[in-house]
């Protein structure tokens, strides 16, 4: 069972230059705390909503800022799932849990975390546990699974940040999270960044939609030539011609 205990959603502000594929950042935050169910395999979910954008987007980088209050952070599993549900990454998985030695079979026993999980961090969340200091996890740390696993996914929609406390006895609370996504346009929705030009139909790139472009399209008619398949439906046809004619003339 997924428990919603009133997380407040802060919707992302999407800002993209739709005329090129230069990257931008989107973020979605959930800033109101709620208790994490103790000893629950399903945990609780904090939704992180990325709003619609004009152009198709693709994730090219991700960071998660996370604050949790918990007296035994080694109890926690934190999973992030993309809006489509296709990709789930365990960013924290009972950090510090080792069969013997330090921190031990029950994971890191320290209190609280206030971290930014980033792939580029020098230290992993698995290796920074100490018996002293609160929050025990702080600063910029590498997650258990690389956030690069989200590269190529569509960022728009509701991301699910699942917070699981697998070991009963010590209970804590989710405080806040911010998901920061580096995105680029992906007009052909193939998961690879590309340009979403507003001058669709300018097949030869001379700044004008004109007869030479029409000629090129007709030459590819019925084929899957990507340069003429403006709407990306896999075939050069009437819908592409319609876009070309709609943009006839000089590009803006």
């Amino acid at each position: 069972m997924t428990c919603f205990n009133g997380p407040v959603l802060v919707l992302a502000t999407a800002f993209l230059a739709t005329s090129n594929a230069h990257g931008s950042e989107l973020h979605a935050c959930s800033g109101s705390g709620f208790p994490i169910p103790d000893g629950s395999a399903s945990g609780s979910v904090a939704p992180l909503v990325i709003g619609q954008s004009e152009d198709p987007l693709v994730v090219v980088g991700a960071r998660l800022e996370l604050e949790i209050e918990h007296p035994w952070v080694g109890d926690l599993v934190v999973e992030l799932t993309s809006p489509s549900g296709a990709v789930t990454l365990a960013l924290i998985d009972r950090a510090g849990q080792v069969p013997y030695g330090f921190p031990g079979p029950f994971g890191c026993g320290g209190d609280d975390m206030l971290v930014s999980l980033e792939d580029e961090a020098a230290l992993s969340i698995e290796e920074v546990c100490t018996t002293t200091g609160t929050p025990v996890f702080s600063g910029v740390l590498r997650p258990q699974q690389s956030l690069a696993g989200f590269n190529g996914v569509d960022p728009v929609g509701t991301w699910s940040l699942r917070l699981i406390d697998v070991q009963s006895g010590d209970a804590g609370s989710f405080v806040s999270a911010c998901l920061r996504l580096d995105v680029e346009t992906d007009c052909d929705r193939d998961g690879v960044p590309d340009d979403c030009t507003s001058c669709a139909g300018d097949l030869d790139g001379d700044g004008t939609v004109d007869g030479s472009d029409l000629s090129a399209m007709l030459g590819s008619w019925g084929t899957s030539n990507q340069s003429a398949d403006i709407d990306g439906d896999g075939v050069v046809g009437g819908s592409d011609l319609s876009v070309l004619l709609g943009n006839w003339g000089a590009c803006p």
Partner: peptide, 9 residues
């Protein structure tokens, strides 16, 4: 040695 004795509060 590292043990549960390192973790009590």
């Amino acid at each position: 040695y590292w043990s549960a004795l390192d973790w009590p509060t």
